[in-house]
Design a protein around this nucleic acid. Structure first.
Lengths: 118, 118
DNA sequence: GAGTACGTGCAACAGTATTGCAAAGTTTTA
DNA sequence: TAAAACTTTGCAATACTGTTGCACGTACTC
C-alpha cells in the first residue's frame, strides 16, 4: 500500500488530495490511504498543503527536505483547474515579524491561472 | 444583527471564526451569522482568512481596502492559542512566478507563537 | 390594509477529516 | 511450526465546518 501511494505521488508533479489519490485505486478505503499519508507525514516523506480549496493536498518532499522552516516553498493553486503545483525552487520569503512574534512555520499559496489553462 | 456582528469584529484586533462569533451571542443561529458575514464579504467590509485550522476566520478590512491583490497582507496564526492576527502593515510580497503562471491572489499565513503566549 | 421584500431560525445536508473496532495478514518467539 | 504479538486494512460511525431550503414573522410600499 505504501509503495503504491508513494508511486502515485512520485508520478505526479503536482500535489494530490486524499480524494484524488483514492480515485487512482479501485477498491481501497479512504481511511487506509489517510493513515498511509499520515505515516508518510510523520516520517517526513511528504508534506501537506492547505491551499484553501477545503481539501488538504499532499506532495513528496525532496530527498534533502527536512520539512523545517528553511525548506518551505511556495505553492500555486490554479483557479481554473484546481491543481496545486509545488514551486520547489521558490522558498517562502522570511518576514520580519513584529516584536514578540516568533516564527515556526508558514503557508504561502499563490492563486492564479496555470500554463495549461491559459 | 449586522451592527452587532460588525461591532464584535471591530472590538477584536484579531480574526474570528464563525464559531467564535457565535459564542458572543446567546441565541443567534449560525446560519444567520453566516449570511451576515457573507453579506459583509460581498460588500468588501471584511475579508476571510483560511489559516489552515479548518475554520475560516473573518476580519474587518481597512477603510481603504479594496480587497484587491494589492491590499493583501500577511496573517499570523499562534500555534498555542490559535488566534489569528492581521499584520496589516505587512503586505504579501510579490513573487516572480515561473513562465506561464499568472497571479490573481495569494494567501500567506505565518505560524508561530504570539507575544501573549510566550 | 394587501402585497412585497427582507431577515431569522430551524432543520437538514454536503464534504472532508478522523476514529473505534474487528478481521485479515505479517512477524516474532518459543 | 504453532501460538502469540503486532500491523494493516476495511467498514461503519462520527465530528466539524460550511451551506441551503423552507417557513415564519417583521418591516416597508403603495
Amino acid at each position: 500500500m505504501r509503495q503504491l501511494v508513494y508511486e502515485i505521488l512520485e508520478k505526479q508533479k503536482k500535489a494530490l488530495s486524499l480524494y484524488e489519490i483514492e480515485q487512482q485505486f479501485v477498491n481501497v478505503e479512504r481511511s487506509t490511504i489517510f493513515r498511509t499519508l499520515k505515516t508518510f507525514q510523520d516520517n517526513y516523506l511528504i508534506h501537506s498543503i492547505d491551499d484553501g480549496t477545503g481539501a488538504v493536498k499532499y506532495a513528496l518532499c525532496d530527498d534533502d527536505c527536512t520539512c523545517k522552516p528553511d525548506d518551505l516553498h511556495i505553492h500555486f493553486l490554479c483557479n481554473k483547474c484546481g491543481q496545486t503545483h509545488c514551486m520547489k525552487d521558490m522558498p517562502v520569503p522570511k518576514m520580519d515579524l513584529a516584536e514578540g512574534f516568533s516564527f515556526e512555520n508558514a503557508n504561502f499559496v499563490v492563486k492564479g491561472i496555470c500554463p495549461n489553462c491559459r
